[in-house]
């Protein structure tokens, strides 16, 4: 018996479809259902409608978590953007040993985020770390900075540790965009008397805008939900100064053992990220 080409395609994609349905669509449906259930370890499971959502929206900790998440994600995205784009611009300018410099700039990408958290925790540690000591040697500060007992500083520390891993990605992304710009444009600009600042503003910037935007979206989407670094560095502290939404969801699961409110918080998280993601998918499809 001969199977037609299109049927062959269907057969080939079946394993993929099974995996997606079992591992994404089924859990998603479970999530939506449990978010409207009273689902704790104590009482029998019953339908409660939107009570879980009401609880979440009335919870001070949720709004605190949202605020911290926005600050964290915004900080990581901004730092990754600056670091990545500057690094890419520099890498695109050099001619000698460029392969060597490129591979050196990729290494932090390979470090697991948790490990990055530990590394920077040591660096910023006021008792044993090199950061405070370095600043003191430069006579910028007179005594070690108490990084992990200060609200703003501990947030900055987490942002740095997270962005450190993400900068290479942003750099590669931007670099690919820069290299797709035809050289002749720069040559023409030079003939017209433009210096490198003009060339950057009128040629490079418009050409890389689209790719950089996608890179920014991906970074903000991912950092919005990342917890690894915070877990390794501060665990949400001091107090709740780095208490992001992901930690809030985990607290619903572990501390309160309430799957209902945990699910409701997850649905809200999903909708928040989906709003970035929708724009990202739109941008990719606009390309085609």
């Amino acid at each position: 018996m001969k199977i037609s080409n299109s049927h062959y395609g269907v057969i080939l994609s079946i394993p993929g479809l099974i995996i997606i349905i079992a591992l994404v669509i089924f859990p998603l449906i479970t999530l939506l259902i449990t978010s409207v259930l009273r689902y704790t370890s104590i009482y029998p499971i019953t339908f409660t409608g939107f009570k879980n959502y009401q609880y979440i929206f009335g919870d001070r900790l949720f709004w605190l978590g949202l605020e911290k998440t926005v600050v964290y994600s915004g900080g990581v995205t901004a730092l990754t953007f600056c670091g990545g784009v500057i690094l890419a611009l520099l890498l695109s300018k050099i001619t000698r040993a460029s392969a060597f410099f490129r591979s050196l700039s990729m290494f932090s990408w390979a470090v697991p985020l948790v490990i990055s958290g530990f590394i920077w925790r040591w660096i910023f540690n006021p008792n044993v770390g090199v950061f405070s000591d370095f600043l003191m040697k430069l006579k910028l500060i007179s005594k070690p900075l108490p990084v992990f007992s200060d609200s703003t500083l501990s947030m900055i520390a987490c942002v740095v540790a997270d962005a450190w891993v993400r900068i290479p990605f942003m750099c590669v992304f931007t670099l690919a965009a820069i290299e797709s710009i035809p050289r002749s444009l720069y040559d023409a600009a030079k003939v017209d008397g433009a210096d490198c600042v003009d060339a950057f503003r009128y040629i490079t910037l418009p050409h890389i805008k689209h790719m950089v935007l996608i890179g920014l979206l991906i970074t903000s989407m991912i950092s919005f939900r990342t917890i690894d670094v915070i877990f390794a560095m501060t665990g949400g502290g001091p107090g709740r100064d780095t208490y992001v939404l992901s930690l809030y969801i985990i607290d619903q699961l572990w501390l309160r053992v309430n799957y209902g409110t945990g699910s409701a918080a997850s649905v809200i998280m999903f909708l928040l990220i989906a709003s970035f993601a929708g724009y990202y998918v739109y941008l990719i499809f606009k390309e085609e």
């Binding site: 997606i20 859990p27 969801i249």
Partner: peptide, 28 residues
């Protein structure tokens, strides 16, 4: 290589699943 009727939709599903943040599916 073997596009079929509806393969575009299947592909769209694959892309759409990438926007589901893992933390959201932690509880389920």
């Amino acid at each position: 290589q073997y596009a079929f009727k509806g393969s575009k939709i299947v592909l769209l599903i694959f892309i759409a699943t990438r926007i589901v943040p893992p933390i959201s599916l932690l509880v389920p």
